[in-house]
């Protein structure tokens, strides 16, 4: 019973609005659904580094003195595709039990940790984060451990700037993961949701079409799920073919002093609290709703 949410501003060219504050409100209104961990990913293509040959490898490192305390660390990498140096670094980090690798970031800022959304804000000041779109997640663990590596959003180290939050279960996770591992994709957690991010990356590397990637996933994945995926050019809401998990979209035309934006979430309360209660509709089972920049 996780809680997911996402926001995309209608005017993408002015991403100096603190979208983090809106995501914070949406997450807090759904906190009752899940309390194990919280995480967000926010995309900002203006304030990010414009150099194509630059991104960060982000990972969480457990404090050597306090067990359960993690710090976000970013290591600069000067290439758009994984270099040998980076592969070696990732390989070394993934053998360290105190490290949880969370992905590659260029225009995206991804933070996640154990605890409530207010704990996340206290640590990383998420309310002040600016950007054009973003996603948030509240986790209650069903199938894997409660630790930062299994917290959402999930990203990959193969392609920068893709993040996924998920509510439900991918029951054929093991099968899909084996297929992707056989193709050479690395996994850094035991959470079924990670397979969505890696699957989408595999598809995007093949044909670059996010709509087709989601359609393929709906066909291949089994189980009850709703997920929100964000890339630097899109925000999408996807439901399984039987519509067994909730997923709704609403629009705020610019009320309450906010700029106009589209919002998506698990619960209606999350849309209400940010005034996104126009054109409210549930995503159709087996379909994706995609907003692009």
């Amino acid at each position: 019973m996780c809680g997911i949410c996402g926001i995309i501003l209608k005017d993408h060219n002015n991403p100096n609005f603190s979208i983090g504050a809106l995501l914070y409100q949406m997450m807090e209104s759904q906190q009752v659904r899940a309390q194990d961990s919280a995480g967000i990913a926010i995309f900002n293509n203006i304030n990010s580094h414009n150099n194509d040959l630059f991104y960060n490898l982000a990972y969480l490192m457990e404090s050597p003195t306090e067990i359960g305390e993690y710090d976000l660390i970013e290591k600069k990498v000067s290439t758009t595709i994984p270099s040998n140096e980076q592969v070696q670094l990732i390989s070394r980090l993934s053998e360290d039990n105190r490290v949880s690798i969370i992905g590659c970031e260029k225009e995206m800022k991804l933070v996640k940790n154990l605890g409530l959304v207010k704990d996340l804000d206290k640590k990383y000041n998420i309310k002040s984060m600016k950007g054009s779109h973003g996603i948030g997640h509240l986790r209650i663990a069903t199938s894997s451990k409660v630790d930062p590596s299994n917290a959402h959003p999930f990203s990959t180290t193969v392609m920068p700037d893709i993040a996924v939050v998920h509510n439900g279960e991918i029951s054929n996770y093991s099968k899909l993961r084996n297929l992707l591992e056989n193709k050479g994709y690395p996994f850094y957690s035991n959470c079924d949701s990670e397979v969505i991010a890696v699957f989408l990356v595999d598809q995007l590397l093949k044909h670059g079409d996010i709509q087709r990637a989601h359609d393929e996933f709906i066909q291949k994945a089994d189980g009850p799920f709703t997920y929100i995926a964000a890339t630097n050019h899109s925000l999408s809401l996807i439901r399984d073919k039987f519509g067994t998990r909730k997923g709704i979209v609403g629009y705020n035309p610019g009320k309450n002093g906010y700029p106009a934006f589209w919002a998506m979430a698990t619960d209606l309360s999350a849309l209400d609290i940010v005034g996104a209660n126009e054109y409210v509709k549930a995503a159709s089972p087996g379909k994706s709703i995609i907003f692009t920049i």
């Binding site: 279960e169 029951s171 054929n172 093991s174 099968k175 084996n178 089994d222 189980g223 039987f242």
Partner: peptide
């Protein structure tokens, strides 16, 4: 019973 809608999703993990 295992939560699949496709027989071919069975895996050693089951």
């Amino acid at each position: 019973a295992l939560g699949y809608s496709d027989f071919y999703n069975l895996s050693p993990a089951d």
